[in-house]
């Protein structure tokens, strides 16, 4: 029988720092980031991988932190929205009015940021494929589209949208 109260001390690499946290085997990365490290920028919303509000970067790749156990993050570089400072996509989100209530914003920004690093020349199809993993209930996605496009290469190589 699983001992639910058993906790392990683990070291996570978060936003360039080594942080010690106590985690149960069943604790998600989202839970530990928020409840133990106070990094509440990553948001709980569906806790089922459907909405993307909890998106963080694991070694630069966007991951839904509600679907990853804290222990799975051992040995990986975790970047949360709090680790992103004055990046072009953050400025673009403000300039383009790409958020309203702001609850989905951290997740969208992390995903957009990773997209702009991994596929700086992404075209419409790639943008769509990436950003469909996040939900926004306030905007009609128009301003988020403008924001991501403004930080991607001016002349997309891919022109399939």
């Amino acid at each position: 029988m699983v001992n639910l109260v058993k906790m392990d001390l683990i070291e996570l690499a978060v936003n360039g720092e080594k942080r010690l946290v106590m985690a149960r085997p069943a604790d998600t990365l989202l839970h530990v980031l928020r409840e133990q490290l106070g990094l509440t920028g990553s948001k709980p919303s569906c806790k089922n991988g459907d909405c993307g509000a909890c998106t963080v970067l694991i070694d630069g790749q966007p991951i839904k932190s509600c679907l990853m156990l804290a222990v799975e993050a051992l040995g990986h570089e975790i970047t949360t929205i709090e680790g992103l400072k004055d990046s072009p996509i953050q400025r673009a989100f403000i300039d383009k009015f790409a958020f309203q209530c702001g609850y989905c914003t951290s997740g969208f920004i992390m995903n957009c940021h990773a997209l702009s690093v991994i596929h700086p020349d992404a075209g419409d199809e790639t943008i769509r494929e990436w950003l469909q993993s996040n939900l926004c209930r306030c905007t009609g996605y128009e301003e988020i589209t403008e924001a991501i496009k403004s930080v991607l290469a001016q002349e997309p190589k891919e022109n399939n949208g």
């Binding site: 990094l39 509440t40 948001k43 709980p44 709090e82 953050q90 400025r91 989100f93 920004i109």
Partner: peptide
């Protein structure tokens, strides 16, 4: 809201 510092009730 773009830095994750916005505080919601959750």
């Amino acid at each position: 809201k773009v830095t994750g510092l916005a505080i919601y009730n959750t």
